[in-house]
Every structure is written in C-alpha cells, then in structure tokens.
C-alpha cells in the first residue's frame, strides 16, 4: 500500500474511490494501452484516489509490459492536484457532493465498481523547455 504523488503515477483497480473538489466528465476515449472504450474524466483541486479492489495483472504480454509501472495493490493511493481517470463502459459514473470532508469544502465523492485507471496529470509547463522558454535553449547548426 503506497501513496504516489509524482506526475504520471498511475493506479489501476476494479474498484476505486475518489475524493476531489472538481470533477469533469470528458466523454469516451479508446484507452491507448488497454484498447477498451472508457469514459474519461479529469479532476482538479485536491484529488485523492484509493484502490478499494485490486485489478489483476494483465495476461496479455504487450499490455503487461506497457503497464508495468501501474500500481495495483489494495490501498494504493494517488494524491495530487489533478487526475485523469478512465472507467470502463459507455456511461459516465455519478458523483455525490458531500460537505466538510477532512477540511475540504464541498468535496465530490465518486466510487467506481468497474475497471478504473487513474493517473496524475502532467502540466503542460513541463514542455516549456521544448518551446524555448528555458534559458538553456540553444540551436546548434
């Protein structure tokens, strides 16, 4: 059971609980690794995701290799400002708004009971160097 806070950290479960301040539905996406159609969500402002039921390690060797960095233990948690979440199926899950959760005002609670993959979002600013906003940028011909 671990707590993960770095950009890109991912948990995968058969059931995952989320506590977030802002929860946005984004429509279905074909997940790039599992190739399943999954509903995508993004969250913002204090996001916590906890595995309540583990997901078994994939048997497909290609998927297993591509997801070897996924955390699948019971109790594994993502703690971040913003998460990207995928839940299997065509219909989005519903959230419940609850006030006064551990100092968070008006937090939204969501519990999934389907295959769920959640990752900590990586801010676009990380690519500023690529755009040349870093002082280290130089072009050598």
């Amino acid at each position: 059971m671990g707590v993960f806070i770095k950009y890109g950290e991912t948990i995968e479960g058969s059931a995952v609980d989320f506590i977030v301040r802002a929860w946005y539905k984004n429509g279905p996406v074909e997940h790039p690794i599992t190739k399943k159609v999954m509903c995508r969500y993004t969250t913002d402002r204090n996001s916590l995701g906890t595995i309540k039921k583990p997901y078994p390690t994939p048997t497909d060797e290609e998927i297993k290799a591509a997801t070897q960095h996924y955390h699948r233990e019971l109790g594994d948690q993502l703690k971040a400002d913003a998460l990207e979440i995928f839940t299997e199926g065509f219909k989005p899950i519903k959230t419940n708004v609850k006030e006064g959760i551990s100092g968070r005002h008006g937090a939204q609670l969501a519990s999934t009971s389907v295959h769920t993959i959640a990752s900590i979002k990586t801010p676009l600013k990380i690519y500023d160097n690529l755009l040349g906003h870093s002082a280290k940028k130089e072009i050598k011909g």
């Binding site: 913003a82 690529l130 755009l131």
Partner: peptide, 19 residues
C-alpha cells in the same frame, strides 16, 4: 499542438493535449 494548447480552452495538461 503545444503552441495552440496555450490558447485552447480546457487544455492544461499533457494528457488534455494528447486527447
């Protein structure tokens, strides 16, 4: 995509840009 993402609504992360 990176340059356009600065001005497109609701793109704040690499994952948003990918999608």
């Amino acid at each position: 995509a990176l340059n356009a993402s600065k001005d497109i609504m609701d793109i704040t992360s690499v994952e948003d840009m990918q999608t």
